[in-house]
């Protein structure tokens, strides 16, 4: 399991056609996320939480500084390599569900990682049971409830056994029962040595999980243990 390190990372969004000035989000951000721990990141809207998630998954590249997974600079890694270490559940999980059937959705990553179709289907069925999704096994993925979509997205990422699980405000739309199920899975991943970063508006979540809280505010990042 590998740590993720941000070393003096600077990032800004280019200016729009109307407003030419670029928007600086991070400047000199230095932070190390150590596996085996849960981090909860919070901060006001527009402060850069989702940008942090996109940087951590290689969807965005830093303007300056570097992001390391273990000893490897992410800038030299393709998304499929980064995905071996960081699994992402997007803020809107319906955007990441590609396949028609939940079982195919979970098997998708396994097949692309080289597993035989039959074996992948068996693993996917077991994951559906594990994530309490067997009842919706035949429901098209886009017709699932938000909570079911989050659990399915999480299952499809978790079966690939990444070092890190990144939940980008995925808990905000869940009811109590679904939320507990998702947090149980996060806890299990951490028990197995992995790490989790949960982006959330909830200030209490870090206390509830005994997690390390990362506070992002415009202009700075602070870590509260």
């Amino acid at each position: 399991m590998r740590a993720v390190s941000f070393e003096s990372v600077g990032f800004s969004y280019p200016g729009s056609r109307q407003d030419k000035s670029s928007k600086q989000v991070f400047e000199g951000l230095t932070l190390t996320l150590v596996p085996g721990k849960v981090y909860v990141m919070s901060g006001p809207n527009g402060c850069g939480k989702s940008t942090f998630a996109k940087l951590m998954t290689g969807m965005l590249k830093p303007d300056s500084g570097r992001i390391l997974i273990g000893e490897n600079d992410m800038v030299w890694m393709g998304l499929s390599d980064i995905g071996k270490h960081v699994g992402l559940v997007m803020q809107n999980p319906s955007r990441q569900l590609i396949m028609q059937k939940p079982v195919d959705e979970i098997a998708f990553g396994l097949i692309h990682r080289g597993m035989q179709k039959d074996e992948a289907a068996n693993v996917a069925k077991a994951a559906l049971r594990d994530y309490k999704l067997t009842e919706i096994a035949d429901t098209p993925t886009q017709k699932l409830s938000k909570g079911e979509q989050v659990r399915l997205a999480m299952a499809s990422v978790a079966v690939l056994e990444p070092d890190w699980l990144l939940l980008d405000e995925s808990l905000s739309c869940l009811d109590g029962a679904s939320r507990s199920k998702v947090l149980d899975k996060v806890a299990r991943l951490v028990r197995h040595g992995g790490g989790a970063l949960i982006i959330s508006h909830s200030k209490d979540l870090a206390y509830e999980l005994g997690a390390i809280r990362i506070l992002i505010e415009r202009g700075g990042v602070s870590v509260v243990v």
């Binding site: 969807m59 998304l79 499929s80 995905g83 960081v86 997007m90 955007r95 692309h112 990422v157």
Partner: peptide, 10 residues
Amino acid sequence: DSLTSAELRG
């Protein structure tokens, strides 16, 4: 986003 998710999954 969908393509990125596919790439992250291999």
